[in-house]
Design a protein around this nucleic acid. Structure first.
Lengths: 360, 360
DNA sequence: CTGTTAGCGCCTTCAT
DNA sequence: ATGAAGGCGCTAACAG
């Protein structure tokens, strides 16, 4: 950080800044009043065809561009929506953001994007910045539940908020989530049906990871298989070294015949760890991932995984937010849950017959 | 698209909109003039400790948040930078965007993001919207050279622009690019050194793809290997079906012993196509990819690839833009080129001895 | 140290 | 159909 924006306020004057033409300028050149010019330029209000032409011509000639800042001030509406995102470089979030952006753009809104690097204070700061910028709504992919108070502040100020993917505020605002519990259940039941009983899970925190782990537990219980906590790991969702996280889980459970990784990063770690241990997939160990990213279908064997409608999650969130902004939806917060889908590929097969030494 | 923003202007009045407190409100409650309140709230200008406290207290109590729109109007500076991006869901762009966002945030700027879906008119529209919003600068990952005129317009209006990754405007503005030609050369020379002579390339358009293909040609020429156009394909950079694009190239060149794919999407397609043909890697065919994404290291065999400093490209672009905005850098457009790096893994080996029937 | 005044660029009654 | 005037929320001279 060399120099923050505020510090250079002085400098700016010295720089030759192009004075952009204003409605006033256009009006003067067209020999009409400012209000007339404004009327033709903004498209509302009367103006004779004659004047219309002249004003338009002058505007073009001068390269007039309406100043949206001034417009927003007057209209008390910014047409901007803010999005707070943990880490844009995660493909999942990038997809979600793409979905959101597409919907917002189609509806004439602009999207402001702020990252948080997973730091709470950054999240809070982003929310404050957005409020100051008069955003009309906020979409939040929160990393931490500590943002609750800030979220409530924003809501108090009349700014609608919707959470995507994770729900940290416990229903204080709208949310669009994946049915995580169901995803975990689908993955686990699939492994159980294939005959596995010792299924390890590389889990993660937050509503996503916890929901998926809960689904795992439920599936086991349903099948009458005892839940063994040694088979359950919970590591940061996007660890620096997913391989060693996976290696630890596998190392501690040599009798496991399957591993379920609750996101795509962790799935990669599992693959690496299994290879290093020379456990073949699916003969020695089956693997199920989460979030169907492209590489999962072109590795060998192709990975069985729980697909989520990533882009749609973003789109739904944006649509929900717009419904709130436009007052089309009123009342208490709603939570929409989208369904995951199991994609069976080649990484899941029947469990091996383990040598006596590795039986539990 | 159900209803665009403009259309609901009327509705908005009917909705109960929370009137946010203004400096005026704070001033009144604190029994001082508006300017005094402004001085303490904005932090510049004198105010007695006594008054300071009172104003601050009132502001907190009222939940006062400064209106950045009004501030921007007054200051004639928005503190906002616009980024136009082809497709955010491409991991490369997401990384670049993350780098940009990080730098901007650290410097107190906000980032507005607009997608284009690769459509020219959307790109132009985004540029116009940004200009209207008084962004202080624009970062562009352009899909089409047709934007030149719009870019010139923006520059004419005094808005600095920097292109990232691709350069469509041919030096009309600053740019931060990868040394693509060098990347293509690195990949190809590596294959040549391994003994390959019939090297196919799955290329792409734009400065990126073309640069990499140029590097490929140069490396062959340097080695005295004739360049055979049948070995050179040029497909859309992010085709819907990368596998069949790859299959076509490979099918047409059964004597090829290596394939170089100029981006990560195409690399995936090559892997799929080779597998379907049952060409083993690297025994039957070596493969080099481009852009070191995580999955390349956990497929088997791990993929040799040309890595680019993705995030850094974004960071450099943002820094360059800030230099322009703050007038730290003046003069004609500059182009910065970052170096790619060859990452040798297991997908490249010596060429096979082909049966007579498949020799050229 | 504080208040008065003016204006950023735009839009919008309200007269004419 | 057009113009004059006022104000969105904020800050920056300039007086006092």
């Amino acid at each position: 950080v060399t120099e923050r924006r505020e510090d250079r306020a002085a400098k700016v004057d010295s720089r030759r800044r192009v004075r952009r033409p204003t409605v006033g300028d256009v009006a003067r050149h067209a020999d009409v009043s400012q209000s007339t010019a404004s009327r033709v330029l903004s498209g509302r209000g009367y103006a004779s065809e004659d004047v219309r032409q002249r004003v338009r011509g002058v505007a073009d000639a001068l390269g007039y561009v309406p100043n949206d800042i001034a417009r927003s001030l007057k209209a008390r509406q910014s047409g901007v929506v803010g999005m707070v995102i943990d880490d844009l470089s995660q493909s999942f979030f990038a997809d979600v953001a793409a979905g959101i952006e597409g919907v917002l753009r189609a509806h004439g809104y602009r999207m402001l994007l702020a990252g948080t690097d997973g730091i709470f204070s950054e999240e809070a700061a982003a929310l404050d910045r957005f409020a100051a910028l008069q955003v009309e709504g906020i979409i939040l992919a929160p990393a931490t539940a500590a943002s609750v108070s800030h979220v409530r502040d924003a809501i108090g100020r009349g700014i609608p908020i919707v959470e995507v993917d994770r729900q940290a505020t416990d229903g204080a605002c709208d949310a669009v989530l994946l049915e995580n519990e169901r995803g975990g259940w689908l993955a686990t039941r699939h492994l159980i049906e294939r005959g596995h009983r010792r299924i390890a899970i590389l889990g993660a925190p937050l509503t996503t990871g916890e929901g998926r782990t809960a689904g795992y537990r439920n599936a086991l219980k349903e099948a009458g298989i005892p839940v063994d906590d040694r088979l359950i790991a919970c590591v940061p969702g996007h660890p620096a070294d997913p391989e060693s996280a996976a290696a630890e889980l596998i190392g501690a459970n040599p009798e496991a015949t399957a591993v379920f990784a609750v996101n795509n990063i962790l799935a990669g770690g599992v693959l690496m760890a299994l290879r290093r241990r020379r456990w073949t997939i699916p003969d020695r160990c089956s693997v199920v991932g989460f979030d169907d990213v492209p590489w999962m279908s072109f590795i060998e064997p192709a990975l069985t995984t729980v697909a989520q409608p990533t882009r749609e999650i973003g789109e739904q969130a944006a649509l929900l937010l717009l419904d709130r902004i436009d007052g089309r939806l009123v009342g208490p917060p709603v939570t929409r849950r989208l369904e995951p889908r199991l994609v069976v590929r080649a990484s899941t097969g029947p469990p091996p017959r383990l040598p006596e030494s590795e039986r539990m």
